[in-house]
Simulated scan of single mutants.
Amino acid sequence: MQIQECRKIWGASEYIRGIPNFVQVQSAIYVPFTIGKYISDDDSWGIFDRELSAVDSAQYKRGDPAKIVSGGFKYCGEPPINPELGSYVYLGPIMQHYGHFLTASLARAWYPYLHGTRGYKFLVHAEISSDEILEIPYARDILGALGISRHNLVVFNEPKKIENLIIPSAAIVEQNHVFSVYGDMCRHIGAYLSRRGAAWKKTRRCYLSKERLAAGVCRLRDEKIVSDHLRTYGFEVLFPEQMNIADQIDVYNESSVVIGTGSSLHTAIFCSSPAKLISLTINNSVNSNFNLFDLAGGFKTEHVLPGDEFEWRHLPENLCNFVDYMRQRSSIQIASDTDLRAFMSEASTGDCENFARALASYLCERGFLE
């Protein structure tokens, strides 16, 4: 079996130096998510101006060209009468999937990073309360590094008029572009959360496994064979969902190479000098979000895939299970190779032992193994 580098990218990846714009809206109308609807199916939520039109800079967009993911274009209800007083900053939707939290929920957080939190309340859309948001460990720690806590994080469950609302434009738009300030902000967060200081010895080699993950976008079938093989070469096999975000950040700070799949590799954005990243590509093309993180973080991820025996299978019938798990409403705890109920797709290498040996040879050629 031959390991191949994957160069096919879907989506755009523009890097923009500087910071996005922001707008200030008087008498803005906040309309919450519709209870029971997943965000992609909800065409009513959003931020609207006094003419009841959606505020463009508050809309959640992705793709090339950037298109609105969901939300309303016009508010059709009765405008709230009594305004919420004070200065609010809109931070967008809180996503309960780690990768989308980084791209959607942190996209506007450059504003508190640059301007601080004093005197502001931070308004978000979410299916859960602000207290429940901060019960998600990575959300609590990442937002906390920016000074956002239960004292200034706000979610409303009914339409509200906001007297004074600042709306920062997104510093990262999925499959489209990223501003340099996004990387600056993430490195600031990483320095705040890191437990080790700044003297990195790069003595670790780590593989990030999904074999214990209960739900996700994709997983590799028979992954344990790969991780067991890498262990024989001195790799640590880690399970990111069982680690706090500070320890995950230090994995990248302390390692010479980190191998994995999916959004767990995006954590490198929090490091000033991350490890070499090798992504096991689980379909035949790479999401350009990886390029956006590379550009903002100043590193380069290498994407590899197995040879001709590689197969990828989409599992759209699992969407409801995946969404329930992200909403913390699922009874699924740990998946197995025969239980992929909450994964949106799976990949197979055909002969996983052969793939593991080929991967080890590939790493030896690049100097990561003796």
Rank of each mutant, 00 (worst) to 15 (best):
Y75D: 03
C76G: 11
P79L: 07
P79M: 07
P80Y: 07
I81K: 08
I81L: 04
I81H: 00
I81S: 06
I81G: 04
N82P: 00
N82D: 14
N82S: 13
P83N: 09
P83W: 10
E84D: 06
L85M: 12
G86A: 08
S87T: 13
S87P: 00
Y88G: 03
V89R: 04
V89N: 03
V89P: 02
L91N: 08
G92N: 15
G92F: 09
P93M: 10
P93S: 12
P93N: 12
P93E: 09
P93V: 11
P93I: 12
I94S: 02
M95S: 12
M95K: 15
M95E: 13
Q96F: 14
Q96V: 08
Q96L: 15
H97F: 12
H97N: 11
Y98D: 01
Y98V: 06
Y98Q: 04
Y98N: 04
G99T: 12
H100Q: 13
H100C: 07
F101Y: 15
L102T: 10
L102S: 08
L102F: 12
T103Q: 06
S105T: 13
S105I: 10
S105A: 09
L106M: 15
L106T: 13
A107R: 13
A107Q: 08
R108H: 05
R108G: 03
R108M: 03
R108F: 00
A109H: 04
A109S: 14
W110T: 07
W110G: 02
Y111L: 11
Y111G: 04
Y111I: 05
P112E: 03
P112V: 10
L114W: 02
L114N: 04
H115W: 01
H115S: 01
H115K: 14
G116M: 02
G116Y: 01
G116W: 02
R118E: 14
R118L: 09
K121F: 02
K121G: 01
F122Q: 05
F122D: 02
F122V: 06
F122Y: 10
L123P: 12
L123G: 07
L123H: 10
V124Q: 01
V124N: 02
E127A: 12
I128D: 07
I128C: 05
S129F: 05
S129V: 07
S130V: 09
L134D: 07
L134F: 06
